[in-house]
Design a protein around this nucleic acid. Structure first.
Lengths: 253, 253
DNA sequence: AGCAAGTATTGATCTGGATCAGATTTACCG
DNA sequence: CGGTAAATCTGATCCAGATCAATACTTGCT
C-alpha cells in the first residue's frame, strides 16, 4: 500500500534501523529484514512527562519497554508508605521483564524527566522470537544481563561501605553514559539524593555527605545535580576490593 | 532402535515426565510429546559430592542446570579472598542463567551436600524453544522469576534489619520446602551460619545470636542445622512492614 | 515579587550490628 | 578412640551510618 512520502520519512526516522541505541537494544545481532519485523510490532507512544508512569505494581503485564530518551526509575512501595528504588534505567535499557512470570508487574516504573519509551508487546515479541533465532538469543541475553546486574547490586548491598556504594553507582553511570555516546566524566543526575539513597540502601543525608566528601578529596566536582568526575582512578580505587565489576552494575559487556 | 527392557525402564525412571519436580521446572505447561523432546537433550550426570562444583566463575557457558536433589550455593569470590554467597538453590531451581549474556559464568556454583543436577545444554535448548512456544514461554518465565527473586533480595538487603532478613530467609525456605512436598515447619539447613550471613549481608555471629534469640522468643526450635518453626505467625509478623513478599524470595507464584 | 513546598546541606547524637576474643561443641580422620 | 581443625555460641567493645534537628537553597505557584 502506497503512503505519502512525508509519513514514510517520518516512520523511517523513528525506525529501529536508524536508532542510535540499536546496538544496545533488541536489534543487536539482527539482520536488516528481521529488524523490520521487530520494528513493525514496536509502539512509539508520546513521551512521558516527569513523574508519569510507564506501569504500576499490579498492572497486567502486556509489554516490555525500552527507554529511548530520558530516565526511568523502578520502585516498590512498602506497606508503611516509603518507597524503595530498585533500578534506574537509561536509554537502551529494558524495563518490565519482571512482569513475565506472574503476568503482572511487581514494581512500578516512572519517568524521572521527560522520557520516551518504545513499547514492545510481549505476546507479539514471543511470536517473533520463535521465528527469529537471533532475536530470541538477544532477548535471552538481555534477561541474563538483568540477572547479573541485580546479582552485582546484591553483592554491593550485602557487603560494601557507603563510600564504595556511591563510588560504584557513579562509575556505573559513567560507563553507561559513555556507552551511549555521552561524556564519561561529566553528567547530570536525574534522580534526587533521596532516590540514590534508597537505591543504595543509604540515608539521603549519607549520600549528601559523601558528595561533599568526594568533593573535598578532589574526586568529584558537584553542583547540585551536575557531576564532574575529576579523578577517575581514585574512584576506581575505592572499589578495588570489590567483586562487583562494573559490568554487573548495568554496563553492557 | 530396540533397547533392552532394563535400559528402557531405567531411562523412563529418570525422565522429566516422571519427575516430581516437573511442575516447578522447564516442563511446566508442556505437552507430553514436547517433554520427550526436552528429555532427549537433558544430560543426567553422576551426582556431585559435597563441595563439588557445577561450574566456576569464568567457565565457558554451555548449559543451564536444574537441581534434582540436594542444594547448590552460588557465590562470587572477592579479590581479598572472602566469598559472597548470591543464592541457595533447591530441587527444581535453575542455576547458570547468569552465563548467557557473556557466554561465561560470572559466579561459581557448588554442592552443599550430595547433589544431583540435570544439565540442559543451552544451544540445544534454544533450538527447542524456537519450535516449542510453550517451552520458550516457560524459559522466559523462569528467567523472569530469577529477576523478581533478586529484586526482592535487593530490597531486603537495602532496608531491612538483621531480624527481618533472617525471618524472610527462613520463611522463604519454608515455602520452598513446602512446595516441594516437604514440611513447611521442620527442615534441615544445608548451609553454615557463615553462608547464611554472607547471603543476608550479616556477620555469622549475628546469625547465631538471632537463632538463639528466635529460640528464646519461642519462634523456633534450633538444634544446630535442624530447624523447627514453632510460631509461623510471629515469624510473618516480623516482616509485616516489608515490601518483600515471599514470592520474591524464591517461592514460585 | 513573595510565599509555600520540596530538596539539599551540615551538625549532633544514638544504635544496630560488626569486629574482636574466648569458650565450647562437633565433625573428621589416621 | 584421641587429637586436630572447623563450626558455633557468647560476651565485650566499637564504629559506620541512621536518625533527629536546624538551616539554607530551589522551584513552582498565585
Amino acid at each position: 500500500m502506497p503512503q505519502s512520502k512525508v509519513i514514510s520519512l517520518n516512520k523511517l526516522k523513528v525506525a529501529c534501523k536508524n536508532c542510535g541505541l540499536a546496538k544496545l537494544c533488541l536489534p543487536l545481532g539482527l539482520e536488516s529484514g528481521d529488524i523490520d519485523q521487530l520494528d513493525a510490532i514496536v509502539q512509539r507512544n508520546r513521551p512521558l512527562q516527569r513523574g508519569g508512569h510507564v506501569f504500576q505494581t499490579g498492572d497486567r503485564f502486556r509489554s516490555i519497554y525500552v527507554v529511548k530518551t530520558g530516565t526511568i526509575k523502578t520502585y516498590t512501595q512498602c506497606p508503611n508508605g516509603t518507597e524503595q528504588v530498585v533500578g534506574f534505567h537509561l536509554p537502551g535499557e529494558v524495563v518490565g521483564l519482571d512482569g513475565i512470570e506472574c503476568s503482572k508487574h511487581i514494581c512500578s516504573a516512572k519517568a524521572l524527566e521527560t522520557t520516551a519509551v518504545c513499547e514492545v508487546p510481549f505476546q507479539h515479541l514471543e511470536e517473533l522470537t520463535s521465528t527469529i533465532p537471533d532475536l530470541q538469543h538477544q532477548l535471552f541475553r538481555l534477561m541474563s544481563r538483568e540477572i547479573t546486574k541485580e546479582t552485582g547490586l546484591m553483592v554491593l548491598l550485602g557487603k560494601s561501605t557507603a563510600e564504595e556504594r556511591l563510588a560504584a553507582f557513579l562509575l556505573s553511570l559513567s560507563v553507561r553514559f559513555h556507552n551511549r555516546g555521552f561524556s564519561a566524566t561529566e553528567f547530570n543526575l536525574s534522580m534526587s539524593r533521596q532516590e540514590i539513597g534508597s537505591y543504595l540502601g543509604l540515608a539521603l543525608e549519607t549520600v549528601s555527605r559523601l558528595f561533599t566528601h568526594f568533593q573535598d578529596e578532589k574526586i568529584l566536582l558537584v553542583d547540585r545535580k551536575h557531576i564532574q568526575i575529576l579523578d577517575m582512578d581514585l574512584l576506581y580505587d575505592l572499589l578495588s576490593n570489590q567483586t562487583t565489576c562494573l559490568d554487573k552494575l548495568g554496563a553492557p559487556s
